[in-house]
Nucleic acid binder design. Structure first.
Lengths: 221, 221
DNA sequence: AGTATTAAATGACTAACAGTCAGTATATAA
DNA sequence: TTATATACTGACTGTTAGTCATTTAATACT
């Protein structure tokens, strides 16, 4: 009785095809300018069909966004499983995020939508749930890497690994976001290269959270 | 010939009345859910009239947002003109922003719209221009305070005052934003109080950018 | 095979809303 | 009192998210 299973697979496949189409259109136009008709056109389906698979345009948007999250997550997974030293893992954590920003700009921009519920009009409970669960997996991974660093004695033990994780992540995000949208203006107005600013920020912060041992190891790299 | 002038005043007054109405509605419902008809109703004007004063719903939203920016700006202005020491000014700069976040949550949320052009559909060139100019005034003030700190020898002179300003601002913003939208979840999931995390972040960062002299003064406070 | 049943897809339709503009009312000038 | 300019109105248009009665296709049954 493989028919049920095949149908299930085809259904999943159709969902992915719709995401492919939505991704193209959203990358091109952004959430408010993209239309469901365009996405249907791109998917070679009727608009009604889109709604058999996703509850709203915003759900579809978040569906695409979650692909970006998965990309980042799987890169972190590789990092966490690697044989690098705890310090190198923490450094690479930042670098990976910066690389992700550089090569997946469109996904990066989408991330912010999740965090701004005041711009949600039709996000379904389920999708919000799903996003929350996956986001948490990402955080657990980041926090896990921080904890390892603390156990290895390179991170100050008077700090909370979760707090450090969120601070590092948030400050990086914020600077990348500003670099993305206002990088040129900062360059011409203040002669500031925001990607340099991000490096400075991470270096300052890293030095602030490392133990003497950690700082020595860091200096040796 | 004071008629022209009076009319000019009345026009400005009408613009403000419209902003009052828009503020109420936007605070209540957020950008996507608020409707121009509601705002017109609240302003006791017809919808058409709104468009004599503002080019689009998004322009109106940014108009309200700029009021929040002015509030923050004028508080910074008082601080900059105060007789506090350079170090105290820098500390108060953070505190002021945190206070603003606490007591003007709705304005704070609006700030993010400006920074996300991917969610702009109808923002006029003029409004964008206006926002840019005012934002720059705010930045100049922040950067000015940092420069004074550097001249006073309490901030490391190998760092760029503009970079320090933007890092401090961005990391604070990001943590407040997360606290705003996900504070409860972080509390229950990780037992983290994000307003505490913000304090930690600012303290770590401050210690990282202060000179020995600055750190001594800081410890004495 | 032919027929019944179930599932997938369609696209015309509705409702809601941003933005427009021809027309009205009000104030000033002649 | 009449003419002109200015402020305002609200019915109207165009667009688009989301729906649903109907059609099409696939599977099950006899």
């Amino acid at each position: 009785m493989g028919i049920e299973e095949r149908k299930e697979r085809e259904k999943e496949h159709r969902k992915e095809e719709i995401l492919d189409a939505a991704q193209k259109v959203f990358f091109d136009k952004g959430l408010p300018t993209a239309t469901m008709d365009e996405i249907a056109e791109a998917a070679e389906l009727s608009k009604g069909t889109l709604y058999l698979y996703y509850k709203s345009k915003e759900d579809l948007y978040l569906g695409v966004m979650m692909r970006g999250m998965q990309v980042l997550f799987s890169e972190y997974e590789v990092l966490a499983a690697s044989l690098d030293s705890p310090l190198r893992k923490i450094i690479k954590l930042s670098e990976l995020y910066i690389d992700f920003f550089a090569s997946n700009r469109n996904f990066f921009r989408m991330f912010h939508f999740l965090q701004m519920p005041q711009f949600h009009k039709q996000v379904s409970e389920e999708m919000q749930q799903y996003c929350g669960v996956e986001t948490r997996r990402l955080w657990d991974m980041v926090i896990g890497i921080m904890k390892k660093g603390m156990e290895a004695g390179i991170l100050r033990s008077d700090l909370d690994p979760t707090e450090i994780g969120i601070i590092l992540w948030s400050s990086s995000s914020a600077l990348m976001m500003r670099g993305d949208t206002e990088g040129d203006r900062w360059k011409e107005r203040f002669n500031i290269d925001l990607s340099h600013t991000l490096e400075v920020s991470n270096r300052l912060f890293l030095n602030a959270i490392l133990t003497d041992k950690g700082r020595k190891e860091f200096a040796a790299i």
